[in-house]
Design a binder for these strands. Structure first.
Lengths: 193, 193, 193, 193
DNA sequence: TATGAATGAGTCTTCATTCAT
DNA sequence: TATGAATGAAGACTCATTCAT
């Protein structure tokens, strides 16, 4: 499978760096190829077109969130604790890779509607995991029975995303990880029973 | 002042329609000129460049939120009630102009970092109003004393924005206004004392 | 009408020269623009795309044949004489413009099937004129009553085209005009009553 | 000799099919290799470059005409009869292989001047055979003494080629073989004594 | 002989902006 | 003020050919 070949990963990683450094609109295929140490044409042996590179970037990096999240959910903890771990994990992954955080919070959002629809469908898996936590919480009585799951999801994801974007736009000047417990507390208040 | 001349408004309104109809990347200056009923060159008598048009679009339309919000704050109501009215107002303004909602939630976000920084500085006035409500709420004892104002602002704005974007991406299929009271309740829970 | 603007003709004439000099596959749009003395982008104010330039070259230049031919047919002469004049005219037009002859006999034939279908539909008007002469000749008894019009047209056009192409491929080394009477005699023998 | 190796013929036959199916400009080396069941690189063990493949296609397939023609000429018949048999043979060979007819009449003509010069030199052998018939006819008194051999050759070849191309462009909709006697008659009239 | 992954040169087209009128 | 014809820079993608295995 092509995704397991080293050059595939080489190019995806190069794309993250080039986009973070130059911005989405200045991330030419030739720059990505140069950063990856391959010829321009080689890109097209692994990706259908430029859009395909960007989708793959998101797909590959999103898995960092999702894989961790699955471990957390499998653990034998309460829904509230799962939520806290999810927020901590989200902030930790992005804190550890400021290149990636620029790309996901700022640059990739400059793509057109088609690309964003594709990104959303990748994101869906993450949001589905979040929904599962919320449903479990309602059923266990930890979260409010009147709660609208979709709204709660938008509350949580919207807040996390806004906090993260703000952190990136302020050039990572404050410590994102240390925000986690306060964000958790605010969100938990909103949804708890 | 140039902003009061009829052609200035003509061009800004034309830009909203063209961007909503064609998307950000397909909103060429010549299309905006045609929609506004002026020559391409005339645009440059009123705007420095294309970016200047887009900033002006945001600036002009943002005032819809801010003017209403000021009336609300001036009213003699509790901070919680002000928050509720602000959410309702936000949803109402966007519900009334689906063209505008497409433009602010989807299309204008495809701009580059510089443009978004400018947009953020316009947005700041709106967020400052929100901060004022929050401060008032803390001082009056309605909102939690431990609350971090910045985080609370991100909680509120992030959630409103996420709900709205989701509504636009689902082609306005559900009624945004009717979400207001549930969103208010969730957010209030998060921040109340 | 856009075809009357000087730049339209400037570009068509430039295209003939560039194609004749460099060959069909080496006739880049930028070369044509340079030869025409305009910017690359200007080409696209007058032509939809590169293919449109090539079709226009054929269209504009084909009219040289057709307009002359109409004068000849309107004259009060016998069908045989009309045929003779048509052949002479064909050879004369191409003899007078060796650039054009390279382009029509060699270069434009390297185009893909779509373009050639378009060229054929332009050519049709010319062949219709030829058919008219043939029909008139059959009716007047000058040409054989058993003659198949389509075959006769292919005999005449095929021969003229082969003679001309051969002249071009031999770098115009012999005098094309002086072949006219012999070609006429051969063709007339083939079709006369 | 490499031309007798099985893979050589495999590749030439694959090229005919690929060109007929996809057109000259869409006949990439990799498609030909795939159709032939060999690796891309293997092509270059048997052919110098892509042009060499195309020349070989013409060379190999042209022999179909020439070998038959030699048998006809060796027979003890009159020059007029030889001409008739040559026309019939030409039409028959192409009728029997519509793939080949597309390739020779339409696709291979999209090649550049160099390739066409090479093709012409291969064609020369065929035209030389035709010349021999014409000379014999003049000497035997069957064809006109004033006849210009080169013009007569262009009359005959140009007509046959035009009829055939027309048949291909009309998607082989009429029966080419049945045109032979009428074409023969027209041509004979043109050149007979 | 045979493979096929890698190479990298080459080009059409768009569109924000200008400037002579 | 207003016009709109003209400008020209910039970039994604293809495919014939090579060469290490």
């Amino acid at each position: 499978m092509k995704k397991e070949k080293p050059k595939y990963k080489q190019i995806v990683d190069a794309a993250v760096i080039v986009i973070a450094d130059n911005g989405y609109h200045q991330a030419q295929v030739s720059k990505i190829a140069k950063q990856a140490g391959v010829a321009d044409g080689t890109i097209y042996l692994y990706f259908k077109n430029k859009e395909d590179i960007l989708i793959s970037v998101f797909q590959e990096k999103m898995s960092l969130f999702i894989e961790n999240l699955q471990e957390i959910i499998q653990e034998d903890t309460t829904p509230s604790e799962k939520l806290r771990l999810m927020i901590e994990n989200h902030f930790k992954v992005l804190s550890n890779d400021t290149f990636l955080s620029r790309v996901t919070q700022l640059e990739l959002r400059q793509s057109n509607k088609d690309l964003r629809l594709q990104i959303n469908s990748i994101l869906k898996e993450y949001l589905d995991q979040l929904d599962a936590i919320l449903v479990e919480g309602v059923e266990s009585g930890a979260f409010s029975k009147e709660m609208d799951i979709r709204l709660a999801r938008q509350l949580i994801f919207g807040t996390i995303d806004e906090v993260t974007t703000s952190w990136v736009m302020k050039d990572h000047k404050f410590d994102l990880n240390s925000q986690a417990s306060k964000v958790y507390q605010l969100l938990l208040n909103g949804i708890k029973a």
